[in-house]
Structure formats: C-alpha cells, structure tokens
C-alpha cells in the first residue's frame, strides 16, 4: 500500500518563532558535537596550541591508539586484570543484547497473558504494575545490591540476565495496549483448528505484535548499550564500553589521558549506536502512546 505523505503546513507567526527556536537548538546542539569530532582527529600537542579550530593535520592514529591502549583495570580476588576495548565491546554486546531481549520478551509475554486471558488475576497484575509505577520507592539500590550478593548473582552476567526477567514499566503497558487492540477472533479460529495455547501465542498473536516488539527491543538495547551505571554497580569486573569511557574520562595518567584521546574514546562508544539509529531510525521514531505504537 502506498503511503500518503502528510502535507506540510504553511508557516504562521507562531510557527516562524518556533522555527527560529529550533534553528538555535540545532546550532547549539550540533556545534559542540562537530567540534568534538574534529578534535578527536587532533594531536594532543595541536589541541594544547589551538583548542578552537580545525586540526593542522588530521590524524587517524588517535583511533588506532585508543583502540589498542585503552584498558580498564579491575581487581578480581586480589589479582589485577587489564580489560581491553575489544573485551569491553564484547561485554557491552552480551549485556545489551541479552538483557534487552529477555526484558522485552518478558514484558511481551506477561502483557499477552494478561491481555488475552481476561481473568481476575490478570487484572491484579495490571493494577500491580500501575501502582508500582506510580508509587515512588526511594533508596532500594543498596538492598538490591545486598540481595544480589546474597544470591551469588553480583558481578555476573547471569545475574543481570535473571534480574532482567522483569515486566514492570512502559514496555508492558505498550504491549498490553497492542494485544488488547488485536481481535480475539484470531485466537478462537486457531483454537477451533486445534492449535494449542502455545501455538496460538507463538504463531498467531506474537507475529502481529512483531512491530512493537522490534521497536521496544531496539529502544531497550540502545538504552542498555549507553548505560554505564549498571556496569559500574552490578558488573564492576566486566566493564562495558560505556563504563570504560566513564572511567576513562577521569583518567589523569598515561599517554592517552588527554582531551583528543578521551573524545576519540567517546566516539568509539557512539559509533555502533549511530549505525543502529541510521539503520532503524524509522522504527525507532514511532509515536509512543499508552495506546500502543503508531508508525
């Protein structure tokens, strides 16, 4: 089906003022980014001499140096380890892909069950999610850390995966609205044809929510890839790239502890997400409402 493109409205005075505001925002937002990108191609000496303008000579070697020398020091059982950037990328991928998938699948599964099986217990689960979202509980992080230590899940990827089996949050509500909107006649027809509950869920209903699933999975993945605080708190000996860059930003010693190299490090964290965004921006830019996702 051919998509009808919305007609661009004519600019009135309010629109013109807002456009000027937009333009100012774009300049203020992009100029520091552009400055950082070209600074990452400067030699440290060139940066000290002239921190403002374009490099005297563009050097790609910063990227090679950071890739080779950027290491995170961690201590496990009294022994010191150096974790290189390649391993940090691996940790980021394992954490972000695994936890994002488990979390999205868990939200989808619980939303499916509570939306399709219109029972009292389903309503209790739905209300519980709403109450938990509204009710602020402050300062449970130490207790969560203590619990993870007690269960032997602290500083372990398996622990992160297990704790990702959570359905609390917006993801659940979006899936719930999506499944509520789907006609139940599909389920009834499939059951008359002899399909089991599992087949109905996997082969009939979930494919219809594939669009919502892929969008929420991508958002979840991007959020986790960028998040350094989880690694800092829960996975200190398996640092992700985000945590590595955070630690690197406070590093004062060594040949790569200078501004161009630190900005190079941040570009290396940014690059994979930027590729994901460019490849899937239409999927990511859907309108989110509690009534589901609108393309």
């Amino acid at each position: 089906m051919k998509r009808i493109k919305a007609k661009t409205a004519r600019l009135n005075l309010t629109g013109a003022l807002l456009l000027a505001g937009f333009a100012l925002y774009v300049v203020l937002f992009f100029f520091p980014i552009i400055w950082s990108v070209y600074t990452s191609f400067k030699t440290p000496h060139n940066f000290v001499e002239d921190p403002l303008w374009l490099p005297q000579k563009w050097v790609v070697s910063n990227y090679v140096t950071v890739f080779k020398e950027f290491a995170f020091t961690t201590t496990v059982n009294g022994q010191r380890y150096y974790i290189l950037l390649t391993e940090m990328y691996m940790n980021s991928a394992l954490y972000s892909l695994g936890a994002a998938f488990i979390n999205t699948a868990c939200c989808c599964l619980v939303a499916y069950l509570t939306a399709v099986f219109d029972w009292k217990f389903s309503k209790i689960i739905y209300q519980t999610v709403i109450v938990i979202m509204i009710l602020p509980v402050v300062g449970t992080l130490p207790a969560a850390l203590g619990l993870m230590r007690g269960l032997g899940l602290y500083d372990s990827l398996v622990g992160i995966y297990i704790s990702s089996f959570s359905f609390l949050g917006m993801g659940y509500l979006i899936f719930y609205a999506t499944f509520k909107q789907l006609p139940k006649s599909f389920i009834e027809a499939a059951k008359i044809d002899g399909a089991t509950n599992l087949r109905v869920m996997l082969q009939v209903m979930l494919p219809m929510a594939a669009s919502a699933f892929s969008t929420l999975f991508l958002m979840n993945f991007v959020g986790r890839w960028n998040d350094y605080q989880t690694s800092l708190l829960w996975l200190p000996s398996r640092p992700t790239v985000a945590y590595g860059v955070f630690a690197f930003s406070f590093n004062q010693v060594g040949t790569i502890a200078n501004v161009p190299m630190k900005l190079t490090g941040s570009m290396l964290l940014l690059l994979p997400v930027l590729i994901v965004f460019l490849a899937f921006h239409k999927r990511l830019l859907v309108n989110m409402t509690m009534g589901g996702l609108k393309e």
Binding site: Y25, V26, F29, P32, I33, W35, S36, T39, V222, W225, N226, D227, Y228, A242, V245, F246, S249, V259, K262, L263, S266, M267, L269, L270, V273, L274, F277, H281, L284, L285
Partner: peptide, 21 residues
C-alpha cells in the same frame, strides 16, 4: 530525527562532549 538524537547518544558521550566544550 534531531530531537531524538539526545535519547540515542549515550549520556556519557554527550557529557564528555559538553564538558570539554
């Protein structure tokens, strides 16, 4: 698209960029 970028770029990357800027 532009307004979505701050949500896509890692907060630590934006922080580093604006910190040094």
């Amino acid at each position: 698209v532009i307004f979505y970028l701050p949500s896509i770029i890692a907060s630590i990357v934006l922080v580093l960029i604006f910190k040094y800027f």
